[in-house]
Computed example of a mutant assay.
Amino acid sequence: MTAQEKRGLWLGLLGVTIFALTLPMTRLAVGTPEAPQMSGLFIASGRAVLAAALSALFLWATRAPWPARRDWGPLALTAGGVVVGFPLLTSLAMRHVEAVHASVIVGVLPLATAAVGALLHRQRPSVGFWACAALGSALVVGFALLRSGQSGLALHPADLLLLGAMACAAVGYGVGARLSQRLRAEHVICWALVIALPLSLPAAWWSRPLAPVSTAAWGAFGYVAVFSMWLGFFAWYRGLALGGTVRVSQVQLIQPFLGMLFAVPLLGEQLDAVTLGFALAVITTVFAGRRMPVHARPAGAATR
């Protein structure tokens, strides 16, 4: 492993550690059905607005050049994934599920990110890789069904939101990482946040809390705005660009564990054996998938 790849892995680890607090902090900010705090829409849009304001200042201070014409489409796709899709879907879901529960769903994200990265970088994962991806996804869905609390094989709507959020994050991570190879990693997330302002600003104003909100909820909102939505991506996109999306995405293996550990003291949640067992099983499939070969697609080969 080269020095650049090692640096990418360490930066990826820093980003994942920051992201691991996102679900517990979001749960703290939105509250519960019995004691609601902020709405999911405000958490998603308000944090994007605050991070966009910081981004505009950063772009100005660093004299960032305007993105090239070819970069606006990928930037919009990145914004759709990590500025709009993932924050909105997780914020809506977290009022109805505990952070420990949601952390298991996050366990499928490393394989999803690796799959998107392989597609964007014209790589050809092996059959074993896709088998591990399918098994990991099946474990996540099985856990959600087990804990849905509904009769029959029916997912809780919050679980569907979380699975959608994972898809959005994988696309946003993969496209943003590719952009970070020709733009500064810090500028990628900053431009994505700025171009999302026409959507996030009106949504934040319309959904702003009118009733009193606890100090803890505001503190959690501040964390997801400044760290989860902004600074975490500085390290994450730089790490993906330096170490490679397929390789560095596997650092997310530890994110479910970190999320669970953070949820216990922050929210007083319980970590039971079934949840831990499913998390270990999902992480095992991701680790196995990481060891499966991923071949470069020959130049000029058609994409199927």
Rank of each mutant, 00 (worst) to 15 (best):
F221R: 12
A204D: 06
S228F: 11
Y223Q: 04
G219H: 13
F234D: 04
L231Q: 08
L240Q: 08
F227C: 04
W205N: 07
S214L: 00
W218L: 02
F227L: 14
S207N: 10
G232C: 00
S214I: 04
V224A: 08
G243C: 10
A241L: 00
W236T: 09
A241V: 10
G243T: 10
L240S: 04
A216T: 08
Y223E: 04
L242V: 05
W206Y: 13
P212N: 00
G232K: 04
W230M: 12
L210F: 13
W206S: 14
P202Y: 15
Y223W: 03
F233Q: 03
P202N: 10
S228N: 14
W206C: 09
L240G: 01
F234P: 12
A235C: 14
L201S: 09
L231K: 01
L240I: 13
A211P: 02
A217M: 07
F234I: 00
L210G: 09
P209N: 15
Y223C: 07
L240N: 05
G243S: 01
S214M: 00
G232S: 06
T215V: 08
G222S: 04
A203G: 07
L242R: 10
L242T: 03
V213K: 09
W206V: 15
W205C: 08
S228E: 05
W205I: 12
A216Y: 07
L242P: 00
